[in-house]
Simulated scan of single mutants.
Amino acid sequence: MTSLRHNPEPGAGPRDGYLDAARACILDVGWRRTTLTEVARRAGVSRMTIYRTWSDMPQLLGDLMTREWTAVVHAAVAAEDPEQPAVDRLVAGVVGTVRALRENELFVRIVELDPELILPYLLSRRGRSQDLILDITTEAVRAAQAAGEVRAGNPVALARGVLLAAHGFVLSAHTMVDDRVSEAELDAELTTLITRALRP
């Protein structure tokens, strides 16, 4: 499994260290057994230091997931080939993000042990990282439309359609993998699906 463990940048503040400690706790024992007290212990600070930053674990988890998924998205975008046509770059970024999320150790751990943490972002509301993905995708759609590579239409609606399609390939692809269909084949189908949905 590919590890996308967060490595703080030089000069990163103490908050990143606290999030690193929370990440390590969740990887070790899962969300339900992780407490702010344990995060403080692992971070080598007092409980009050953590409580001054986050009043409860859901707030901390929200910030941790936003940081984690944002890093995944930015890495996928950075891996795009600037020589490719705009629509191909867009599709490659989406599929790369889907693949990276499925392999991300924190995401896998949450889905394995505490899948209910993901449900609000699928059934009730969007999260900050989803809005980030939508903003990036919307701008990519607009650029590809300007280049004549993506069909006319509301770029926000097109971006949201792409995200909805991608959700299934992130969360449910494993249920469709067996001795007849590989994960790589499913990713190829996602590539075809998004490309054909966007091209004029």
Rank of each mutant, 00 (worst) to 15 (best):
T2H: 10
S3N: 10
L4S: 13
R5I: 03
R5N: 10
N7G: 11
P8I: 13
E9L: 15
E9N: 06
P10W: 13
G11K: 15
A12D: 15
R15T: 14
D16L: 15
Y18I: 15
D20G: 15
A21H: 09
R23M: 05
C25N: 08
I26H: 13
V29F: 10
G30S: 09
W31Y: 15
W31R: 09
R32Q: 07
R32N: 11
R32M: 02
T34W: 06
T35L: 00
V39W: 08
V39Q: 00
A40M: 03
A40E: 06
A40I: 02
R41D: 15
A43L: 04
G44A: 12
V45C: 15
V45D: 04
M48T: 07
Y51C: 02
Y51Q: 10
W54Y: 13
S55Y: 01
D56W: 03
M57H: 00
M57D: 00
M57K: 09
Q59R: 06
L61E: 04
D63P: 02
L64V: 09
M65C: 08
E68H: 12
V73Y: 13
A75Y: 05
V77L: 14
V77S: 03
A78K: 14
E80I: 12
D81Q: 08
D81P: 04
Q84F: 07
Q84R: 05
A86L: 02
A86D: 05
V87R: 13
R89S: 00
R89D: 09
L90T: 03
A92R: 12
G93M: 11
V94T: 08
V94H: 08
V95G: 11
V95K: 07
G96Q: 10
G96F: 12
V98H: 12
A100I: 00
N104W: 00
L106Y: 01
L106W: 05
L106S: 08
F107M: 08
R109M: 10
I110P: 03
E112R: 13
D114V: 02
D114P: 00
P115K: 14
E116I: 05
I118H: 11
I118D: 06
L119N: 11
P120D: 11
Y121E: 07
S124M: 12
R125M: 14
R128F: 07
S129C: 08
L132T: 10
I133Q: 12
I133V: 11
I133N: 09
I133D: 07
L134F: 06
D135F: 00
I136D: 06
T138C: 09
E139Q: 10
A140R: 12
R142I: 11
A143G: 07
A143S: 07
Q145H: 08
A146T: 01
A147L: 00
A147D: 14
G153F: 05
P155Y: 10
A157I: 05
R160Q: 09
G161W: 02
A165D: 00
A165T: 14
G168F: 00
S172P: 01
A173C: 02
T175N: 02
V177P: 00
D178K: 02
D178V: 10
V181R: 08
V181E: 05
V181K: 12
E185V: 03
A188M: 05
E189H: 12
I194L: 15
L198G: 00
